[in-house]
Amino acid sequence: MTAPGLDEDGHIAREGSLDRVPTAFAGVVADARARIGALFGPARLHSAYLYGSVPRGTATPGVSDLDLLLALRRPPTAADRADATALAAGLDADHPVIDGAGILLFDVDTLLGELERHDLGWFVACLCTPLLGEDLAAGLPRYRPTSLLARETNGDLAGLLPRWREQLAAARTDAETRTLARAVGRRVVRTGLTLVMPRWGGWTSDLDISAEVFGRYYPERSGQLRLAADLARRPSADRAALTVLIDDLGPWLAAEYAAVHGVKAPRPTGP
């Protein structure tokens, strides 16, 4: 019997498809494709991808956000990032069906490079759905739910915790706190799932299933991971809940992760 999220050969199956985009989101996806092509053009853009609940077919109108990744022909510049920010804001303003939009920018060499083979490369090959251009997955390997994959995808949680504490302290509005809650909740759930992924032998992006699977191996922490899943799915401005994730579950999860899988290979810090 094939494990959840794997193909018949035991590799992680690509989880999204344009065919799975809910009808309510078809308009914003079509608009995103048109705007990306017009704004970035073939000189800058190699390919574009959807990821998240929309291409998985599980998005909820008015609640889910739109997640996009753009693969550029050269490293992103400040102008590229400004264009992406404006594009995301425009999509959010013009389409009430989404609750926000986010755009990741990377260059092709980075996405296909050896350093990112088991992080961004896996992300593109398994979690991203092609929207525009030539699919980079053709130049990437197939992936199994291994400890190496776990280490390189989420073995950097310890470094994120100080940043999250600073962001929570700096948040002045409920909207800012909810945005942080969604990001923290998603990352904590994903880290909890990948911690146990090699033992479980499967893959899922479903928040509830991730929390349930994690709880099989760490029942004493299962309630906290369910809290993270709730915040990821329905972000709130509850600072006490965020503090539990950042100051209690987070440090424990980072230490356990390092003990089980090791720490993610360091990345260049830039100029």
Rank of each mutant, 00 (worst) to 15 (best):
I103D: 08
A26D: 11
G52E: 07
R199K: 14
V21H: 00
L149E: 09
A86S: 14
D92T: 15
E15Y: 00
P145V: 08
P235L: 08
I98M: 05
S64K: 06
D230W: 14
A232P: 00
E152Q: 14
G270H: 08
G10H: 06
T23R: 15
G100H: 03
G250M: 02
A241I: 02
L195H: 13
D92N: 05
G192R: 04
G62E: 11
G100L: 00
A71P: 07
T129H: 04
V97N: 11
T179L: 09
R267V: 10
A43H: 10
D230N: 07
L227G: 06
A175S: 12
V260I: 09
G262W: 12
D99I: 00
P251F: 00
D109C: 00
T194E: 12
S64E: 08
E116I: 00
T243N: 08
A13K: 13
R186V: 02
A232D: 07
R74E: 05
G90A: 05
T243K: 01
A34H: 07
A255Y: 00
V260H: 13
G139R: 13
D156G: 14
N154P: 00
L50E: 11
A229V: 06
L242I: 11
R239K: 04
I36V: 15
A137W: 01
S64V: 07
L231S: 01
W200Y: 15
P141L: 01
A88H: 04
I36E: 06
A232Q: 07
